[in-house]
Computed example of a mutant assay.
Amino acid sequence: MRRLISAVKISLDGKIEGPDGYADWVKAWSEDYGLTPQIDACLLGGGMYPGYEQYWTAMQRAPDEPLPMTGQKPTAKEIAWAKLIPELPHYVLSSTLKTALWPNTRFLRGVDEVAQLKNLPGKDIYLVGGAQVASCLIDAGLVDEIRLIVHPLLAGAGKSHFEGLDGRKQLELSEVRQLENGLVYLRYGLI
């Protein structure tokens, strides 16, 4: 069975967004979790997908230009990810979205379809986000691993990545790495 791996960049207090609706402490949205060799699909929630598609499409069209969403030029790692993702099937868990710009995008209408996706042959699946779909799939027992890059910042107000969970979840730490600029990489299995 394929594994579903949630990977996210968070503040030390577990926030994925500040009060303005954006994680301004994250300098690049590249895939920095070591997932690329082991995945062959991405899964997102319907709330996150339109912005995700817009962000990476802008980078694919003009990799040397500042991004309209951030005003920053993409990093080399972001450009590499932007080149790879059109090749990966993207699955969007949404009851309302029906169209996507990317031709390799499919819509899943329920948690049972995510379970079916995990049972298909293939490599692991990268659960890109957002918070609501991650909490829903953790609660459903479908997330196998959580990888975090923790930023040395207490964001205070903002959206927590795990605020929608229905109760306590036990995790088992499998890897810790100190990264540059005080960032920490954590990898957990769900028990």
Score class of each variant (00 low, 15 high):
residue 34 G to H: 12
residue 83 K to D: 03
residue 82 A to M: 03
residue 58 A to H: 05
residue 31 E to R: 06
residue 43 L to E: 10
residue 29 W to K: 07
residue 104 N to D: 06
residue 36 T to W: 08
residue 59 M to K: 00
residue 93 L to S: 12
residue 63 P to N: 05
residue 100 A to V: 06
residue 32 D to Y: 10
residue 38 Q to W: 13
residue 28 A to D: 13
residue 88 L to G: 05
residue 92 V to Y: 11
residue 54 Q to M: 03
residue 91 Y to H: 14
residue 101 L to G: 15
residue 73 K to H: 01
residue 93 L to R: 13
residue 92 V to N: 11
residue 72 Q to W: 06
residue 88 L to A: 07
residue 45 G to W: 11
residue 89 P to S: 09
residue 79 I to V: 15
residue 37 P to H: 14
residue 44 L to W: 09
residue 66 P to S: 05
residue 102 W to G: 11
residue 73 K to Y: 00
residue 82 A to S: 09
residue 49 Y to Q: 06
residue 57 T to P: 00
residue 42 C to E: 14
residue 101 L to I: 05
residue 45 G to H: 12
residue 29 W to N: 15
residue 50 P to G: 09
residue 77 K to T: 11
residue 53 E to S: 04
residue 93 L to E: 10
residue 32 D to R: 15
residue 78 E to G: 05
residue 60 Q to A: 06
residue 28 A to I: 00
residue 94 S to A: 11
residue 77 K to E: 15
residue 35 L to M: 10
residue 82 A to L: 01
residue 69 M to I: 05
residue 40 D to C: 08
residue 42 C to S: 11
residue 61 R to Q: 11
residue 97 L to D: 13
residue 96 T to F: 05
residue 92 V to D: 10
residue 101 L to R: 14
residue 74 P to N: 05
residue 34 G to E: 12
residue 68 P to H: 03
residue 93 L to Y: 14
residue 28 A to L: 02
residue 84 L to M: 13
residue 89 P to K: 10
residue 69 M to E: 08
residue 84 L to A: 14
residue 54 Q to L: 03
residue 73 K to R: 15
residue 26 V to G: 03
residue 75 T to Y: 05
residue 84 L to D: 03
residue 76 A to M: 06
residue 32 D to V: 06
residue 85 I to F: 05
residue 96 T to H: 13
residue 100 A to M: 09
residue 35 L to A: 10
residue 52 Y to G: 01
residue 72 Q to P: 00
residue 102 W to K: 14
residue 44 L to A: 14
residue 59 M to E: 00
residue 52 Y to P: 01
residue 68 P to R: 08
residue 31 E to D: 14
residue 90 H to W: 09
residue 89 P to A: 08
residue 102 W to S: 15
residue 40 D to Q: 09
residue 50 P to Q: 06
residue 64 D to F: 00
residue 103 P to F: 13
residue 64 D to A: 13
residue 68 P to V: 02
residue 46 G to P: 11
residue 71 G to Q: 02
residue 56 W to A: 02
residue 41 A to H: 10
residue 91 Y to R: 06
residue 72 Q to T: 03
residue 66 P to T: 03
residue 81 W to V: 07
residue 67 L to E: 02
residue 76 A to Q: 13
residue 101 L to Q: 15
residue 33 Y to I: 08
